[in-house]
Amino acid sequence: MLMGKLLSSPLPGEQAIFVLRQHWYRFFKVVVRYFLVAVIPFAVLWLMGRYYPVLWDKLFNDGLLEIFVKLLGSLYYLGVWVFFWDAWVDHYLDVWVVTNLRIFTYEQRGLFNRETSELRLGRVQDVSAKIRGLAATILDYGTVIIQTAGAEGYFSFDYVSRPHQVAEKIMKLVDEVKRHDGGNVEA
């Protein structure tokens, strides 16, 4: 089912070796951001009720302002919830599929903006991985960079779990393809 959905036209003998998604820590940062966005209005209202009770009374006991606050509050939280959902879909739909012949990258960049790239393993020249930062070192995620022989230059995938192992696996697949095709980079 996965192959059928992600690879619309697999080559003969093509098999998915692994599917990569971004590390959960990236989405965790999004969760924290949305949590703050949801909590800050409550904190402001709490501070207002405690230190500026006159303003509080005006906001919640004045007919028109009260209506504005309620309508905007409802719309705000609906917006925060739906945008949070969209952030999850965005995170979920960023996928790298590595097969024994090709690498596919699917990147969702907001609504109605999806980029798909395909790279034949025979065109890969070099694969490297880098881990930068404290969180990345502790949680073992980083960027995998694939240098290609084509005009594209390079492919990179951020927030990959265990990037060094992934780079090593991809390099092994590239070696296999090149050995099988006798060094023909157009394979």
Binding site: V82, W85, D86, V89, L93, Q108, L111, F112, R114
Partner: peptide, 11 residues
Amino acid sequence: SSLWHLLRYGF
């Protein structure tokens, strides 16, 4: 629209 993306491109 977001849900549509999930059903269209996800699995």
